[in-house]
């Protein structure tokens, strides 16, 4: 499968990434080869097969709904690059 500039740019947007020129060149080549290999899956007969997203028939393992102390705001903010002591600070999304 050919990965052209338009598709690569679309994938950058979906992935929230901006590639350098050398990364673009490398990844478009890699994607072409990898997807060509993956295309073998198209030959597998999956008519009447249900999708499986989990190894076992899965029922969510709920815990009892009890009130517990949550992690303190002070601790959580320690890892935030920008905060004002109360909340994480980010640039405004409007002008």
């Amino acid at each position: 499968m050919k990965i052209d500039d338009k598709l690569l740019s679309y994938l950058e947007d979906l992935s929230c990434l901006t590639l350098t020129a050398s990364e673009k060149s490398q990844l478009s080549d890699d994607f072409g080869k990898i997807l060509e290999y993956m295309d073998i899956l198209g030959g597998l007969d999956t008519i009447d097969v249900s999708e499986m997203s989990h190894p076992f028939p899965h029922v969510n393992a709920f815990r009892p709904d009890t009130v517990k102390e949550s992690t303190s705001r002070e601790l959580i903010l320690k890892n935030a690059p920008h905060h004002n002591g109360e909340i994480i600070v980010a640039p405004p999304t409007y002008e």
Binding site: L41, L44, T46, V49, E51, M52, S53
Partner: peptide, 15 residues
């Protein structure tokens, strides 16, 4: 459909 959904079905066959 061609990739992700197909892979989930292949996973079911493998299991």
């Amino acid at each position: 459909e061609a990739y992700y959904q197909k892979a989930l079905k292949a996973r079911a066959l493998l299991k």
